[in-house]
Protein backbone atom coordinates (compact mmCIF):
# COMPACT_ATOMS: atom_id res chain seq x y z
CA UNK A 1 0.00 0.00 0.00
CA UNK A 2 1.20 3.48 -0.81
CA UNK A 3 1.21 5.94 1.98
CA UNK A 4 -0.45 9.10 0.61
CA UNK A 5 1.00 11.28 3.33
CA UNK A 6 4.53 10.20 2.52
CA UNK A 7 3.96 10.76 -1.20
CA UNK A 8 2.66 14.20 -0.34
CA UNK A 9 5.78 14.99 1.66
CA UNK A 10 8.10 13.83 -1.11
CA UNK A 11 6.20 15.88 -3.68
CA UNK A 12 6.30 18.91 -1.44
CA UNK A 13 10.06 18.50 -0.93
CA UNK A 14 10.85 18.45 -4.66
CA UNK A 15 8.50 21.28 -5.47
CA UNK A 16 10.06 23.39 -2.76
CA UNK A 17 13.57 22.44 -3.88
CA UNK A 18 12.83 23.50 -7.45
CA UNK A 19 11.53 26.85 -6.23
CA UNK A 20 14.63 27.34 -4.11
CA UNK A 21 16.88 26.54 -7.08
CA UNK A 22 15.21 29.35 -8.99
CA UNK A 23 15.48 31.89 -6.21
CA UNK A 24 19.06 31.12 -5.32
CA UNK A 25 20.87 32.35 -8.46
CA UNK A 26 18.77 35.52 -8.55
CA UNK A 27 19.72 36.30 -4.98
CA UNK A 28 23.36 35.46 -5.57
CA UNK A 29 23.63 37.65 -8.66
CA UNK A 30 22.23 40.59 -6.76
CA UNK A 31 24.38 40.00 -3.68
CA UNK A 32 27.65 39.51 -5.58
CA UNK A 33 27.14 42.51 -7.85
CA UNK A 34 26.14 44.79 -5.01
CA UNK A 35 28.95 43.71 -2.70
CA UNK A 36 31.61 44.03 -5.37
CA UNK A 37 30.24 47.05 -7.20
CA UNK A 38 28.79 49.31 -4.55
CA UNK A 39 32.15 50.55 -3.15
CA UNK A 40 33.06 52.05 -6.55
CA UNK A 41 29.81 53.94 -6.96
CA UNK A 42 30.03 57.63 -6.26
CA UNK A 43 28.95 60.85 -7.91
CA UNK A 44 32.04 61.06 -10.06
CA UNK A 45 31.50 57.52 -11.36
CA UNK A 46 27.97 58.39 -12.43
CA UNK A 47 28.70 61.83 -13.88
CA UNK A 48 32.22 61.73 -15.37
CA UNK A 49 33.48 60.46 -18.70
CA UNK A 50 35.72 57.36 -18.73
CA UNK A 51 39.41 58.23 -18.24
CA UNK A 52 42.79 56.53 -18.60
CA UNK A 53 41.63 54.07 -21.23
CA UNK A 54 38.41 53.41 -19.28
CA UNK A 55 40.36 52.27 -16.23
CA UNK A 56 39.11 55.17 -14.12
CA UNK A 57 36.70 58.08 -14.35
CA UNK A 58 32.99 57.47 -14.85
CA UNK A 59 30.41 55.92 -17.14
CA UNK A 60 28.23 58.96 -17.80
CA UNK A 61 28.31 58.70 -21.62
CA UNK A 62 27.30 55.04 -21.42
CA UNK A 63 24.37 55.80 -19.10
CA UNK A 64 23.16 58.60 -21.36
CA UNK A 65 23.70 56.45 -24.47
CA UNK A 66 21.48 53.76 -23.00
CA UNK A 67 18.84 56.34 -22.07
CA UNK A 68 18.86 57.71 -25.65
CA UNK A 69 18.64 54.25 -27.17
CA UNK A 70 15.81 53.13 -24.93
CA UNK A 71 13.90 56.35 -25.55
CA UNK A 72 14.39 56.01 -29.29
CA UNK A 73 13.30 52.37 -29.23
CA UNK A 74 10.11 53.22 -27.38
CA UNK A 75 9.26 56.19 -29.61
CA UNK A 76 9.40 53.80 -32.52
CA UNK A 77 7.96 50.63 -31.00
CA UNK A 78 5.14 51.87 -28.78
CA UNK A 79 2.93 53.55 -31.42
CA UNK A 80 3.45 50.81 -34.00
CA UNK A 81 3.04 48.03 -31.45
CA UNK A 82 -0.07 49.58 -29.97
CA UNK A 83 -1.74 50.24 -33.32
CA UNK A 84 -0.95 46.69 -34.45
CA UNK A 85 -2.33 45.30 -31.19
CA UNK A 86 -5.56 47.29 -31.58
CA UNK A 87 -5.92 46.03 -35.12
CA UNK A 88 -5.23 42.42 -34.17
CA UNK A 89 -7.47 42.27 -31.14
CA UNK A 90 -10.32 44.51 -32.27
CA UNK A 91 -10.53 44.53 -36.03
CA UNK A 92 -8.72 41.54 -37.55
CA UNK A 93 -10.96 38.77 -38.81
CA UNK A 94 -9.88 35.27 -37.97
CA UNK A 95 -8.43 34.33 -41.35
CA UNK A 96 -5.21 32.97 -42.79
CA UNK A 97 -3.51 36.37 -42.99
CA UNK A 98 -4.27 37.16 -39.34
CA UNK A 99 -3.01 33.77 -38.24
CA UNK A 100 0.20 34.24 -40.25
CA UNK A 101 0.74 37.67 -38.68
CA UNK A 102 0.15 36.33 -35.17
CA UNK A 103 2.56 33.48 -35.85
CA UNK A 104 5.13 35.96 -37.15
CA UNK A 105 4.88 37.99 -33.94
CA UNK A 106 5.38 34.92 -31.79
CA UNK A 107 8.41 33.96 -33.88
CA UNK A 108 9.78 37.48 -33.75
CA UNK A 109 9.87 37.13 -29.97
CA UNK A 110 11.95 33.98 -30.30
CA UNK A 111 14.63 35.34 -32.64
CA UNK A 112 18.07 35.49 -30.96
CA UNK A 113 19.12 39.04 -30.24
CA UNK A 114 22.33 38.80 -32.25
CA UNK A 115 20.21 38.12 -35.32
CA UNK A 116 18.46 41.45 -34.71
CA UNK A 117 21.91 43.01 -34.57
CA UNK A 118 22.85 41.62 -37.97
CA UNK A 119 19.46 42.56 -39.37
CA UNK A 120 19.86 46.11 -38.09
CA UNK A 121 23.31 46.29 -39.60
CA UNK A 122 22.06 45.15 -43.00
CA UNK A 123 18.88 47.24 -43.08
CA UNK A 124 19.47 50.45 -41.16
CA UNK A 125 23.25 50.87 -41.15
CA UNK A 126 23.99 49.72 -44.70
CA UNK A 127 20.81 49.79 -46.77
CA UNK A 128 19.23 52.98 -45.40
CA UNK A 129 22.72 54.44 -44.89
CA UNK A 130 21.99 55.61 -41.35
CA UNK A 131 25.47 54.36 -40.44
CA UNK A 132 26.30 53.14 -36.96
CA UNK A 133 24.12 55.63 -35.12
CA UNK A 134 21.60 56.11 -32.35
CA UNK A 135 18.90 55.99 -35.03
CA UNK A 136 20.00 52.57 -36.30
CA UNK A 137 20.42 51.20 -32.78
CA UNK A 138 17.06 52.52 -31.58
CA UNK A 139 15.24 51.08 -34.58
CA UNK A 140 16.92 47.70 -34.10
CA UNK A 141 16.05 47.62 -30.40
CA UNK A 142 12.55 48.84 -31.26
CA UNK A 143 11.96 45.91 -33.61
CA UNK A 144 13.30 43.56 -30.96
CA UNK A 145 10.79 44.74 -28.33
CA UNK A 146 7.82 45.03 -30.73
CA UNK A 147 6.58 41.50 -29.97
CA UNK A 148 6.69 42.20 -26.22
CA UNK A 149 4.67 45.37 -26.64
CA UNK A 150 2.18 43.83 -29.06
CA UNK A 151 1.62 40.76 -26.91
CA UNK A 152 1.18 42.75 -23.69
CA UNK A 153 -1.11 45.28 -25.40
CA UNK A 154 -3.27 42.57 -26.92
CA UNK A 155 -3.67 40.90 -23.56
CA UNK A 156 -4.55 44.24 -21.98
CA UNK A 157 -7.10 45.06 -24.69
CA UNK A 158 -8.68 41.63 -24.59
CA UNK A 159 -9.03 41.72 -20.81
CA UNK A 160 -11.37 44.72 -21.00
CA UNK A 161 -14.78 43.15 -20.26
CA UNK A 162 -17.01 42.49 -23.22
CA UNK A 163 -19.93 44.06 -21.31
CA UNK A 164 -18.27 47.50 -21.52
CA UNK A 165 -18.08 47.28 -25.29
CA UNK A 166 -21.63 45.99 -25.45
CA UNK A 167 -22.98 48.94 -23.46
CA UNK A 168 -20.97 51.38 -25.53
CA UNK A 169 -22.43 49.98 -28.76
CA UNK A 170 -25.91 49.94 -27.27
CA UNK A 171 -25.63 53.70 -26.64
CA UNK A 172 -24.97 54.34 -30.30
CA UNK A 173 -21.18 54.48 -30.21
CA UNK A 174 -19.28 53.36 -33.28
CA UNK A 175 -16.58 50.73 -33.08
CA UNK A 176 -13.78 53.30 -33.11
CA UNK A 177 -15.49 55.43 -30.45
CA UNK A 178 -15.83 52.34 -28.29
CA UNK A 179 -12.17 51.50 -28.70
CA UNK A 180 -11.03 55.08 -28.20
CA UNK A 181 -13.17 55.95 -25.15
CA UNK A 182 -13.81 52.64 -23.42
CA UNK A 183 -11.35 49.92 -24.43
CA UNK A 184 -8.08 51.89 -24.64
CA UNK A 185 -8.40 53.84 -21.36
CA UNK A 186 -9.11 50.61 -19.49
CA UNK A 187 -6.19 48.85 -21.17
CA UNK A 188 -3.57 51.55 -20.59
CA UNK A 189 -2.08 50.13 -17.37
CA UNK A 190 -1.56 46.74 -19.00
CA UNK A 191 -0.06 48.36 -22.07
CA UNK A 192 2.30 50.44 -19.93
CA UNK A 193 3.41 47.40 -18.00
CA UNK A 194 4.31 45.61 -21.21
CA UNK A 195 6.05 48.67 -22.56
CA UNK A 196 8.23 49.05 -19.49
CA UNK A 197 9.17 45.38 -19.54
CA UNK A 198 10.17 45.96 -23.17
CA UNK A 199 12.23 48.97 -22.10
CA UNK A 200 14.09 46.87 -19.55
CA UNK A 201 14.87 44.31 -22.21
CA UNK A 202 16.07 47.03 -24.62
CA UNK A 203 18.29 48.59 -21.97
CA UNK A 204 20.01 45.32 -21.17
CA UNK A 205 20.73 43.81 -24.59
CA UNK A 206 24.21 43.95 -26.07
CA UNK A 207 23.99 42.06 -29.33
CA UNK A 208 21.47 44.28 -31.17
CA UNK A 209 23.54 47.41 -30.54
CA UNK A 210 26.89 45.80 -31.22
CA UNK A 211 26.95 46.55 -34.96
CA UNK A 212 24.37 49.28 -35.12
CA UNK A 213 25.36 51.99 -32.68
CA UNK A 214 27.73 51.08 -29.88
CA UNK A 215 30.99 53.01 -29.68
CA UNK A 216 34.05 51.49 -28.05
CA UNK A 217 34.99 54.76 -26.46
CA UNK A 218 33.55 58.26 -26.83
CA UNK A 219 34.70 60.99 -24.50
CA UNK A 220 31.69 63.23 -25.26
CA UNK A 221 27.94 62.81 -25.52
CA UNK A 222 26.40 62.26 -28.97
CA UNK A 223 25.19 65.45 -30.68
CA UNK A 224 22.51 64.02 -32.95
CA UNK A 225 20.67 60.80 -33.68
CA UNK A 226 23.20 60.13 -36.46
CA UNK A 227 26.08 59.89 -33.99
CA UNK A 228 27.41 56.77 -32.40
CA UNK A 229 26.95 56.40 -28.67
CA UNK A 230 28.31 54.36 -25.82
CA UNK A 231 25.86 52.10 -24.04
CA UNK A 232 25.99 50.35 -20.69
CA UNK A 233 25.79 46.69 -21.74
CA UNK A 234 28.38 47.12 -24.47
CA UNK A 235 30.62 49.21 -22.21
CA UNK A 236 30.47 46.41 -19.66
CA UNK A 237 31.44 43.92 -22.33
CA UNK A 238 34.34 46.12 -23.43
CA UNK A 239 35.82 46.72 -20.00
CA UNK A 240 35.37 43.07 -19.09
CA UNK A 241 37.01 41.53 -22.14
CA UNK A 242 38.67 44.09 -24.40
CA UNK A 243 40.58 46.36 -22.05
CA UNK A 244 43.26 44.80 -19.84
CA UNK A 245 43.75 45.70 -16.19
CA UNK A 246 40.38 47.27 -15.49
CA UNK A 247 39.71 47.28 -11.76
CA UNK A 248 37.16 44.64 -10.86
CA UNK A 249 35.26 47.22 -8.82
CA UNK A 250 34.61 49.35 -11.91
CA UNK A 251 33.30 46.37 -13.84
CA UNK A 252 30.93 45.37 -11.09
CA UNK A 253 29.88 48.96 -10.48
CA UNK A 254 28.95 49.27 -14.18
CA UNK A 255 27.00 46.03 -13.94
CA UNK A 256 25.28 47.35 -10.84
CA UNK A 257 24.20 50.56 -12.58
CA UNK A 258 22.78 48.54 -15.47
CA UNK A 259 21.04 46.16 -13.11
CA UNK A 260 19.53 48.95 -11.05
CA UNK A 261 18.33 50.68 -14.22
CA UNK A 262 16.57 47.53 -15.45
CA UNK A 263 15.23 46.60 -12.01
CA UNK A 264 13.87 50.12 -11.55
CA UNK A 265 11.96 49.79 -14.83
CA UNK A 266 10.55 46.45 -13.75
CA UNK A 267 9.63 47.93 -10.40
CA UNK A 268 7.71 50.73 -12.10
CA UNK A 269 5.89 48.09 -14.13
CA UNK A 270 4.99 46.18 -10.98
CA UNK A 271 3.78 49.34 -9.26
CA UNK A 272 1.57 50.27 -12.20
CA UNK A 273 0.12 46.78 -12.26
CA UNK A 274 -0.49 46.93 -8.51
CA UNK A 275 -2.30 50.27 -8.76
CA UNK A 276 -4.35 48.90 -11.61
CA UNK A 277 -5.43 45.78 -9.69
CA UNK A 278 -6.41 47.91 -6.74
CA UNK A 279 -8.64 50.11 -8.86
CA UNK A 280 -10.12 47.37 -11.01
CA UNK A 281 -13.45 46.34 -9.63
CA UNK A 282 -15.27 44.53 -12.37
Amino acid sequence: MRNPQRTEKIAFFFLFLATLVIALPVGLVVIIIISKGLPAINWQFLSDIPRQGMRSGGIFPAIMGTVYLVTGAIIFALPIGLLAAVYLSEYAKDNLLTRVIKLAIVNLAGVPSVVYGLFGLALFVVFFKFGASILSGSLTLGIMILPIIITASREALESVPYSFREVSYSLGASKWQTIRHIVLPNAIPGILTGTILGLGRAAGETAPILFTVAAFYLPQLPKSIFDQAMALPYHLYVISTQVPNVDEKIRYATALVLLVLVLCMNLVAILIRYQFRKRKKW
Partner: peptide, 26 residues
Protein backbone atom coordinates in the same frame (compact mmCIF):
# COMPACT_ATOMS: atom_id res chain seq x y z
CA UNK B 1 -33.45 51.53 -29.47
CA UNK B 2 -31.61 51.53 -26.16
CA UNK B 3 -30.79 48.58 -23.96
CA UNK B 4 -30.42 47.78 -20.27
CA UNK B 5 -28.51 44.61 -19.55
CA UNK B 6 -28.90 41.75 -17.11
CA UNK B 7 -25.94 42.64 -14.95
CA UNK B 8 -25.55 46.29 -13.92
CA UNK B 9 -22.55 47.34 -15.97
CA UNK B 10 -21.53 50.96 -15.32
CA UNK B 11 -18.25 52.07 -16.86
CA UNK B 12 -15.40 52.55 -14.36
CA UNK B 13 -15.99 56.30 -14.61
CA UNK B 14 -17.83 58.84 -12.50
CA UNK B 15 -21.62 58.84 -12.27
CA UNK B 16 -21.74 61.98 -14.40
CA UNK B 17 -19.39 60.63 -17.05
CA UNK B 18 -21.35 57.39 -17.27
CA UNK B 19 -24.50 59.22 -18.24
CA UNK B 20 -22.78 61.82 -20.41
CA UNK B 21 -21.00 59.10 -22.39
CA UNK B 22 -23.89 58.44 -24.77
CA UNK B 23 -24.19 62.17 -25.49
CA UNK B 24 -20.46 62.46 -25.95
CA UNK B 25 -20.30 59.72 -28.59
CA UNK B 26 -23.26 61.29 -30.32
Amino acid sequence: VGMVFQKPNPFPKSIFENIAYGLHVN
